[in-house]
Design a binder for these strands. Structure first.
Length: 346
DNA sequence: AACGCGCTCAACCGCCTGTGT
DNA sequence: TACACAGGCGGTTGAGCGCGT
């Protein structure tokens, strides 16, 4: 315990920052940039340690910070990202421009956790709470908001939010002759940044390829021997820029992750072993800011083809952030998807 | 008005990692 | 290779505030 090593050397101020200190730090960094943080207090005339200066800048003084309360849309995104990333607050904050990890962490601990429990969702696992726990939560807050209406399509249990855009039973692959489980799904969230593949079939194996889901995408090569292995796989040809993936390990509850390099080589992505008692998911996301899965999947490449552009069809038309997500949205999206295919066939 | 309680949020703490020597 | 140091991160703390009694 005690002060950080940098604070031992001198008697340094701690606690809340005064307006004068803020002013000094702001003026200094605006003029010179922060450079080496440990030298900032010396050069700016502050009796603080470098770490304290850094924190103050990042969490409070930075000009690109977004002030004010979080929108519902931001909260939803945090929940989705937390389901994927856990308590990796800095990574979550990276997806929310103008928000800091500290701010998001505070919001999670003080507000979102409670809301999730009231909805019967365990905030750490994003799975439904046990019945007695739900009763306890309800008893603790009888005026809790009603459960949101969920669409009737299957949603993987570790996908807590109602904001996922599920494509049920699209994982049909007639051309590759594979056995596809009825419950196989491909879905992406409303922010259109994350793609997930899931299979919760307890009756064997399944795999599919994006190319087989979307007719215009050229068929991917795959090893026929894969058919005999208990694997769920997703083939992505011409991987989008900066693709990263995460998938659960079959042996324990940990997650593996990696970059998409192997996908660029056309290799089969060994998603995970199928576990009868547990759902199997893989998540894919691109680090490219302007990347959208819907465009990628519907078009087979990125960006949109001129064909689609000339038809002025937006495959993401139903991924409107302000809209509550429900069956209607999905229906419309699927209808639109059919339209896209019709255009390609003619 | 006084008090207690719960909540929010800024800031600190300790640990980990990367880098330079 | 070992060490020191800086930066970054997640967990925790505690001051301040609002609200109910």
């Amino acid at each position: 315990m005690g002060r950080h090593s940098c604070c031992y050397k001198q008697k340094l101020r701690k606690g809340l920052w005064s307006p004068e200190e803020d002013d000094k730090l702001l003026k200094y960094i605006t003029k010179f940039g922060h450079g080496c943080w440990s030298s900032v207090p010396k050069l700016s005339g502050l009796q603080r340690c470098g770490k304290s200066c850094r924190l103050r800048w990042i969490n409070y003084l930075r000009p690109d910070l977004k002030r004010g309360t979080f929108s519902q849309q931001e909260e939803n995104l945090i929940i989705e990202l937390h389901a994927l990333l856990g308590n990796r607050w800095s990574q979550i904050a990276a997806q929310l421009p103008g928000r800091t990890d500290n701010e998001i962490k505070n919001l999670w601990n003080s507000c979102i956790k409670k809301k999730l429990r009231q909805r019967g969702i365990d905030p750490s696992t994003h799975k439904p709470l046990e019945d007695d726990e739900v009763q306890k939560e309800k008893a603790a807050s009888p005026a809790a908001a009603p459960e949101p209406i969920l669409n009737k399509f299957v949603r993987p249990t570790n996908c807590s939010s109602a904001n996922y855009f599920s494509l049920p039973n699209l994982a049909y692959s007639p051309d590759c002759g594979s056995r596809i489980g009825q419950s196989q799904q491909l879905w992406f969230n409303k922010s259109d940044k994350f793609l997930s593949a899931a299979a919760n079939s307890s009756s064997g194996f399944s795999f599919t390829s994006v190319s087989s889901l979307f007719p215009s995408v050229p068929s991917s090569g795959f090893s026929s021997s894969m058919e005999l292995k208990p694997l769920t796989s997703l083939i992505v040809e011409n991987s989008p820029p900066g693709l990263h993936w995460e998938a659960p390990n079959s042996s324990n509850s940990s997650w593996s992750s990696g970059a998409g390099d192997s996908l660029f080589d056309g290799n089969l992505f060994p998603c995970t072993q199928m576990m009868p008692e547990r759902e199997s998911h893989a998540h894919f996301h691109s680090q490219s800011d302007d990347f959208k899965w819907s465009e990628y999947l519907l078009n087979g490449s990125f960006p949109l083809s001129t064909e689609l552009q000339s038809q002025n069809i937006d495959p993401c038309c139903e991924i409107k952030e302000e809209e509550p997500f429900g069956i209607e949205g999905l229906g419309f999206w699927l209808q639109n998807q059919q339209q896209v295919f019709d255009i390609r066939e003619t």
